[in-house]
Design a protein around this nucleic acid. Structure first.
Lengths: 308, 308
DNA sequence: CTTGAATATCATCTATCGTGATAGTTCCTG
DNA sequence: CAGGAACTATCACGATAGATGATATTCAAG
């Protein structure tokens, strides 16, 4: 059985005529006859009663239901890959907690506005998990800290983040090494690249054993930092965006440690669904012209200006 | 896009190997490659990541969902026509009110017991409507009074019915012509063949204008006959089956009028669904060996023997 | 770097499909 | 009932696409 045959069969059933079906499907009548005949032979049942008026037999009526569902699924599948059509289906994005909180909302909003038929599935996790997840096909694309050194990867820098040391008290300058050595650090769970920065920072100060508490969410972490539980390392914009809710203070990290880029990574473009292509377009445009998107970072900066 | 290609694609996705898929589908590896390649060209997207381990890309994962639904519908359609498999799908039976009430229950019960996966749709109506309905494809098969003189019809006698004159009072012999002439007859609506018998009977008696009330259901008709509203003409077994509920009396009609056969009619066998074939089998067996089926007629005959 | 297992490519043969001409229906009309 | 119109079936042929086996290439592990 062939999809072509089912298409022809359906058209014959709809129009009630072999000739009409042939014209609508841009072929000739004899071809219609041949396809119907082939179907009938395969199923060993007359599907169409051709005595005078063309009508479906019982067998034909039984088949037409399945033909409809097969063909509609087929049409849907085709439309999913139609390049010029509005993209549909799923888009499974993986992103770090901080990126999700700070950077993605305006971009996702813009994307959803432009392509409302795409179902977005956003999953957060540390960089290492995200990369693994994408390799295993669990994410279509990911936002991670730093470059991913993997061949055959579509990769571009999405955001520049300035990391700061966050504490519950005001800091005029970086804390002394001995102070940091005994301090507790709050970080996301294993795999978060910012966490590696903590260790890098400590190493700079000659400190190698650090006490690190793990947190799953940004809110929990900032809440604990605010009450003085310890230090955290986070993007400056993230801290600023939340400062109106948490009484936290920050101090810039040395440039070579504090500068980190968030990259957008996805498999090669020829494996993309149209939804992924559309998302990459929106993302690229938002990154190049940040003004065109609502930047919640800048809004909250103004907000918090009142509080600081 | 072709069903074959989707089958191959699904198998590759399941097994994670071109070679394994080829073996399972009884073909060669190069053919698998070709089909996948064709799909990828048609959709203009890489569906499978062949680096080391074979895995679906985002595009592949998007497609596989549709492939599954297309193929499962296809498989269902095929199984519907599989001759040796247990029949499934719909069976739309049309039958006269009296046949439905008296003859069909044991047969339908037997059929349902043997083929529980078939959905039976039983519709009642007068003979003329049933024939029209079947010609229009609304019924798969019908039970009608008398032969249907149409070529290309599968037709066989299912039941012999003995028609009787039914009244609310006892009749030692046929009522006198003048009695019948002024009487009211109760019949099913236009198209019922038993109704024609009334007119035939009247003509025999030289009566041409008869007063006929129309009823939609057997119960309503018998109820009205019981309270003396008029006469009815019905199969003897039908009357007997209901006599314990209605106080009605009957008298045999003259043989040439009273003898009527119920025929089973369906389009030619090559238009049948397996469900229809199975039903015809059950029916034929029940007709040939009435004992093998529970005969509600005979049961109620014993029941009513107490009442008469 | 080599090896083995897997996929891609290629040439070839075969089966299938689409086409146009023609033959055979059915139904309507006079 | 004959003739014609409209439709479907059949057929032969050319084009296309599919299946196959041999061979080349790729990839990852040792």
């Amino acid at each position: 059985m062939q999809l072509k045959s089912l298409r022809i069969f359906r058209e014959v059933a709809r129009t009630g005529s072999f000739v009409a079906a042939a014209e609508l499907l841009h072929t000739v009548q004899s071809n219609v006859t041949a396809h119907i005949k082939k179907l009938e032979e395969e199923l060993d049942a007359k599907l169409i009663d051709r005595h005078g008026t063309v009508r479906l037999t019982s067998a034909g009526q039984a088949l037409i239901q399945y033909a409809e569902s097969i063909l509609s699924a087929h049409d849907e599948a085709l439309s999913l890959f139609q390049k010029n059509a509005s993209p549909r289906g799923y888009l499974r994005i993986g992103a770090m907690e901080t990126t999700t909180a700070l950077r993605l909302p305006p971009i996702l909003a813009k994307f959803h506005e432009m392509h409302p038929e795409v179902d977005i599935k956003l999953q957060t996790g540390p960089t290492a998990d995200l990369i693994k997840g994408m390799m295993e096909g669990k994410h279509d694309c990911i936002f991670v800290a730093g470059k991913v050194n993997h061949p055959r990867l579509h990769l571009f820098k999405a955001f520049d983040e300035q990391l700061v040391l966050v504490a519950g008290r005001h800091m005029d300058e970086m804390p002394e090494p001995h102070e940091l050595q005994t301090a507790t650090f709050l970080a996301f769970r294993q795999g978060c690249s910012y966490r590696q920065r903590i260790e890098l920072l400590m190493a700079n100060y000659g400190v190698y054993a650090t006490r690190i508490f793990e947190f799953g969410t940004l809110d929990a972490m900032l809440g604990c930092v605010a009450v003085g539980m310890g230090y955290a390392i986070l993007p400056r914009k993230t801290v600023e965006a939340h400062r109106h809710r948490f009484d936290v203070h920050s101090h810039p990290l040395p440039k070579e440690i504090g500068q980190v880029a968030t990259y957008y990574a996805a498999p090669e473009t020829d494996t993309w669904t149209p939804a992924m292509t559309a998302f990459a377009d929106v993302l690229r445009r938002a990154v190049l012209q940040p003004e065109s998107c609502v930047d919640i970072g800048s809004i909250t900066k103004n907000d918090t200006a009142v509080h600081t």
